[in-house]
Amino acid sequence: MSSYLEKQQRAFKSNVTSAATKVSTKRPNLTAQPESAPSPAPSNASATSKLQKDGKRKRETPNIVYSQPASTGHGNETLTQITYVIDDFLKKKDQPKTIHEIMSWLSQSNVEEAKKRLIVKILKLHDRVKWIPDPNLKVQTWDSGTFLYLPLIDVRSKNELISHLQTRADARGVLVKDLKDGWPNCEDAIDELEAEHRILVTRTKKDNHARMVWSNDPSLVHKVDQEFKNMWAGIQLPSVDDLVRQLQEAGQKPASEDPSKRVKGPLKPKEKKKKAPRKGGKVTNAHMAHLLKDYDKSKK
């Protein structure tokens, strides 16, 4: 037993000795380091993700907000300024204004005279502006007189409205929205005139606002006695269905009957037309009758 152990011990030592001779005894120089160590090469996965991110960034568009420019004035073009002057100045003020007041409102009092003359010329030719000459001057200058907004209907009081309706040549009504162009708070006056029976008014179903007005004669309005009203209220009329049934029983056609609701009988199927038998033509070759005769007995 001891001899076997000794053999194993000697074999182990010999293997260790042979393996030690193959190991290199040189140690690496740990103190010597390169001045700039190269960065490790990126892996394929990291390079691919970076390309994808760069690609997405290139495709992304910046969020540009398109908004209206800030209101810094009344425009620089002459026609734009004319629109502002008529709608926002003359119409709202509802008073005659001179050209100097208009240019001051536009913040352009110091512009050249040629532009002022151009604005004056356009305002005098505009169909919604009335130029009032200066009564104190015998000869008008280019900047004299005042400008007044001219509405669609030049009415601003109850008496003017009655006069306008009575002088109309046609029987058409007047739109309330046209009255509001020069008389914004006309609804109260319309309600008062309607209560006095001086005008006729049609109103909207939703808000009960005045829509159109006509002239009315208050002398044609007669008061109905309360006794007659009570008598009329006591009459009970039959329902519409009863009226229709009674008229139909009497053999009359009610005017209130809806043609689309009439009960129609069942539709009859259309009969197919039978084709008529084809008639033979006139036989001209009688000498060949024995050849053209049909001997088939199955045919009737």
Rank of each mutant, 00 (worst) to 15 (best):
H209P: 00
H209D: 01
H209K: 02
H209R: 07
A210R: 03
R211K: 06
R211P: 00
R211V: 01
R211W: 08
R211S: 06
R211Q: 08
M212V: 07
M212C: 00
M212L: 07
M212Y: 07
M212A: 01
V213L: 00
V213W: 02
V213S: 01
V213P: 00
V213R: 00
V213A: 00
V213T: 01
V213F: 01
W214Y: 09
W214K: 04
W214R: 03
W214Q: 04
W214V: 00
W214E: 02
S215K: 11
S215Y: 08
S215V: 02
N216A: 06
N216Y: 03
N216L: 04
N216K: 10
D217K: 04
D217P: 01
D217Q: 05
D217T: 01
D217G: 04
D217C: 02
D217I: 05
D217M: 05
D217A: 04
P218W: 09
P218G: 04
P218R: 08
S219I: 05
S219Y: 07
L220T: 13
L220W: 10
L220I: 12
L220Y: 09
L220N: 14
H222F: 04
K223G: 09
K223C: 07
K223W: 08
V224T: 13
V224N: 03
D225V: 03
D225A: 08
D225W: 06
D225G: 01
D225C: 07
Q226Y: 11
Q226N: 14
Q226R: 14
E227V: 08
F228C: 03
F228A: 05
F228G: 03
F228M: 02
F228V: 05
K229P: 01
K229G: 11
K229W: 13
N230H: 11
N230D: 12
N230T: 09
N230V: 12
M231E: 11
M231Y: 13
M231K: 15
W232T: 04
W232K: 13
W232P: 00
W232V: 04
A233E: 14
A233Y: 13
A233N: 13
A233F: 13
A233K: 15
A233D: 09
A233Q: 12
I235R: 10
I235P: 02
I235Q: 10
I235W: 09
Q236R: 08
Q236V: 08
Q236G: 05
Q236A: 10
L237K: 10
L237F: 13
L237G: 05
L237P: 00
P238Q: 14
P238L: 15
P238W: 14
P238H: 14
S239L: 07
S239E: 12
V240F: 15
V240A: 12
V240W: 15
V240S: 14
V240Y: 11
V240P: 06
V240E: 14
